[in-house]
Design a protein around this nucleic acid. Sequence first.
DNA 1: ATTGAATACTTAGACAGTCTAACTTAGACT
DNA 2: AGTCTAAGTTAGACTGTCTAAGTATTCAAT
Lengths: 143, 143
Amino acid sequence: MSDSEVLARELSTTLRRIVLLLRRAVAGQPVTPQQYAVLGSLEGGPRRMTELAEEHAVHLPTMTVAINRMEDGGLVTRGSDPADARVRTVELTEDGRSRLASVRRARISYLAAQLETLTPDEREELATVLPLLDKLGRADPPR
Amino acid sequence: MSDSEVLARELSTTLRRIVLLLRRAVAGQPVTPQQYAVLGSLEGGPRRMTELAEEHAVHLPTMTVAINRMEDGGLVTRGSDPADARVRTVELTEDGRSRLASVRRARISYLAAQLETLTPDEREELATVLPLLDKLGRADPPR
DNA sequence: ATTGAATACTTAGACAGTCTAACTTAGACT
DNA sequence: AGTCTAAGTTAGACTGTCTAAGTATTCAAT
């Protein structure tokens, strides 16, 4: 068994725990976890439906209904691409942006409280390794 | 701003990316992500409904219907606590155990492929810091 | 020993998230 | 023009989630 596999096994366990932790962090917030995730994708500017669906690993119709609901709720607006009449773009509204900010604040403060259970040294060590996790998440999906 | 908050901010971003990565890892598998998560909680033996609900940060009725469906699907069975007739326990069936194993294999092999994009040194570094993330996830929820 | 409150769980009803299948419209390519 | 492909949407089915309400059991305090 390769060292990647051994590590993957441990990583899988750890990530499971982290996912449960995050669920707690956003439980009871005024947007669902899925909405929070999509809003985050829109922070940098308008995105196409297809891009959003791929990024979140859902099929296009799923994203369509998700965006429909957020549009109804005033969190996003749809636009068009002047260069290609088939594509729809999605953009944050002011409401969407502030909603995103407030949920993010809650999430960050939850994580910060959680981080207080580590020692300063441990936090330091964690900080140095975050870019690695980032790289891992950013890598092109294999296969 | 405390160092925990600064770190929490970066951690939040990184974890967002990791969550999207994991969504890809289990997309198209024969159990839903939620079912996979619950099956994982049962690996060590029977658990009570209330425990499961708390661990997954959902309300009890949510867990009830989730378990109902998995029971219908033959993945788990319900039992009783001889010491307290109110509590129901939930246990993996053989089918449930093998289903869990197969999804886990898929997830781990996806992560392993992803880890191949790092250098051996980076993997080593990641390995040393995993226990920290584990501790973070295991800490008692603040507040 | 009885009763009243709390605990563990389930059911029901509403709505969000997800999928597949089918449709519409627009661009691309002879 | 005519066909193929790409981008989105709609519809229908099922899962995931919540709140509200109900049942059964245990516990506590007279």
